[in-house]
Design a protein around this nucleic acid. Sequence first.
DNA 1: CCGCAAGGAATGAACGTTCACTCTTAGTCC
DNA 2: GGACTAAGAGTGAACGTTCATTCCTTGCGG
Lengths: 209, 209
Amino acid sequence: MNIHFGMSPAARRLRLDRPATPGRDDKAEQILEATLPLFVERGFYGTSVPEIAARAGVGAGTIYRYFDSKEALVNALFRKCKAALLSRVLTDFPFHANTREQFAALWQRMVDWAVAEPDAFAFLELHAHQSYLDEESRALEGRIVQFGVGFISAAQQRGELRSGPPAVLIGIVMGAFIGLRSKSAQCGYSVTPEDWRLAQQCVWEAIRI
Amino acid sequence: MNIHFGMSPAARRLRLDRPATPGRDDKAEQILEATLPLFVERGFYGTSVPEIAARAGVGAGTIYRYFDSKEALVNALFRKCKAALLSRVLTDFPFHANTREQFAALWQRMVDWAVAEPDAFAFLELHAHQSYLDEESRALEGRIVQFGVGFISAAQQRGELRSGPPAVLIGIVMGAFIGLRSKSAQCGYSVTPEDWRLAQQCVWEAIRI
DNA sequence: CCGCAAGGAATGAACGTTCACTCTTAGTCC
DNA sequence: GGACTAAGAGTGAACGTTCATTCCTTGCGG
């Protein structure tokens, strides 16, 4: 009968409204993308679920089809961002270069990512060790830190890095990076690529032998 | 007549019951002290006013006798902490020493304060501050940054500091400091006085000529 | 038609804030 | 000095609002 007429608008919908993938993951992705800037701007407790829903262009109830709770949502977002940063840093990382080159590569990859995904980077800073992160998110963070500690220890034993507790060196390097990004944003100063290069040189001086 | 007798118990009270301060400020202080650890732990939006009242040992309504709103409370706390840090850093600061010594003094004073008042320091570094701080708090922050910029520019013109945008140097130094404090806390690593000294040397290497 | 994804009104809990009241205290009178 | 009183600090239950979450209705794809 009118099956044809019934399908026709549906087919149009599928093709026009969602050009690439029809997607179960698409909706989840769409919700995560809407969540990110809100959490960055107003924080976890400062952002309401209906607000997220409105920005994502979905109903409030739909969010609960994809995430068990607001907490599950923030944890999913945290892990997604961490994974994206990790992937950006580790893909084709020059593991066999010398420490100076490895440091430059690490710095440049972080800069690239922080520039490309400023909200994601700000989100990771902001939510690094908050009370609503679950065990899995904390464990992920812990594993990354452990990797960094091992990496630094090895370089120190080869005599290519200033000796001292690896946690101290990590704190200085990551802190300087985050500080440059956030403090300058606070002053209304926009960090140029040249500033990033200067900062890389500065921070290398801090940790070199 | 008995004006003398009338005033006498009042004077006694003033001296005996409230040895230092007569206690209008005392309650406000008590509320601010209770607020600090809660805001550090759970953030502004994550902490409820009744929670603050319970920890301060006062009724919820009492808080509104001293602060117009929750926002006014957080702004008062922010300004109090900023003023305390500023005071610690600037009191007897060796303004006429050379840049190396001034940097060491700045660093040591920040370490002393961050160790003595860990919650206050953590509170100042809470990033979510942007949305609820009022004009006065932002202006205070701006004035401090401007002072730092002028200070650094002068040292650069004397050739005692690496050249480059002052905002970049501020970001690196403050970032490294904050990063060392928070990242190491995150690893469960406790920063020793020796670590702080090492870090000071590292960060000086980053900004020296 | 059926099955299910999606929406958004409904819901109970919790929020910031208020207010009618109690309790403490300074000042006055005998 | 002790009793009384006016003043105002302190209280916590109650208010209207907004929250996270649930659930019933809607409408499309097969």
